[in-house]
């Protein structure tokens, strides 16, 4: 299945399961979990069901387009549902059928893998899903986000689109994936991948990145004071990306790393606090309307 058709099929499938298809959020982020639809969506008791593609940037994973399995920027497909279906495992497996993988002809294993994001103050219980040994999905029941205990739980299903597509097309190099019948993934992304590798490892302005980080942090403090949690959360994502770029340059010591992570976590917490305050009012309004 072509890369673009894969995305379409997943969209179709999850839309049928009642998800709303939102769009990628227009800021750099390390994983789909950072998308506000997930970050805020899981925090309250309000039911939610969304799916979306999320470009994810991990500067330190870049390999100058020379490694067949690694990229500094790639695509995640994210499904977030609260509360999850009782047969969510089956619903997930059917999504694989929807993209042309006949379950009965493959080996599928759910390997214990509890997920954690120290920068978001988030963690959950779950699995890596292996398709014939290849990890294709992270399946997590969220327990904490922005240090808030979550109830009801949300399920987050994250597909690695390139991995899935390599599997589906039997390719052993990401850049050989067919985007459609004529164009390869490499044609779309290879040069970009190379340039960003150079930028991330050699050319980024380290001093400026540190200054930016401090600035974003100040903005979060200022904006959350006025309960502007959405713009404030943008700043959290930007700070997180600055941090990732700094990490790629290898200029951060272990102690400093821990400190920066804690600062991002604290920023995320401030945004979540404001959001929860706001939606409590919203939930109350709904009840009164009834």
């Amino acid at each position: 299945m072509y890369f673009q058709n894969l995305i379409n099929s997943l969209n179709d499938y999850w839309i049928k399961q009642g998800c709303i298809m939102v769009q990628p959020y227009d800021l750099e982020k390390g994983a789909g979990t950072f998308n506000p639809a997930t970050f805020f969506g899981v925090l309250t008791t309000k039911p939610t069901a969304v799916c979306y593609v999320e470009p994810s940037r991990r500067p330190a994973d870049a390999r100058f387009a020379s490694n067949p399995n690694r990229l500094g920027k790639y695509y995640q497909y994210q499904v977030v549902i609260k509360p999850p279906h009782k047969d969510i495992q089956k619903v997930y497996l059917k999504s694989l059928e929807a993209i042309g993988i006949k379950i009965s002809e493959h080996d599928i294993k759910w390997i214990e893998d509890d997920w954690e994001s120290p920068t978001l103050g988030a963690n959950g219980i779950g699995w890596e899903i292996w398709l014939d040994g290849m990890e294709i999905t992270q399946f997590t029941y969220f327990e904490k986000m922005a240090s808030f205990d979550l109830f009801p739980v949300t399920v987050e299903i994250t597909y690695g689109l390139e991995r899935l597509c390599m599997f589906s097309q039997k390719k052993d190099n990401i850049f050989d994936i067919m985007w459609n019948e004529k164009i390869t993934y490499g044609e779309v992304h290879k040069e970009m991948e190379k340039q960003f590798s150079v930028y991330s490892f050699e050319k980024s302005d380290v001093d400026r990145l540190r200054q930016d980080f401090d600035y974003y942090e100040k903005e979060v403090l200022r904006l959350t004071k006025d309960s502007l949690f959405y713009p404030a959360y943008d700043m959290v994502m930007k700070a997180s990306h600055s941090f990732n770029l700094l990490m790629a340059r290898g200029t951060i010591s272990v102690a400093e790393r821990a400190n920066l992570i804690k600062r991002i976590r604290d920023m995320a917490r401030l945004c979540a606090d404001e959001y929860v305050k706001g939606t409590k009012a919203e939930v109350k309004d709904q009840k009164e309307l009834k």
Binding site: H106, D132, G133, M134
Partner: peptide, 22 residues
């Protein structure tokens, strides 16, 4: 070790080899 019958044995073998190579 695969969980299942031998249907699609070739798929699984190929998959196992590819992930090993990766």
């Amino acid at each position: 070790i695969r969980d299942g019958l031998s249907v699609g044995h070739k798929n699984v073998e190929e998959g196992f080899l590819n992930v090993f190579k990766a």
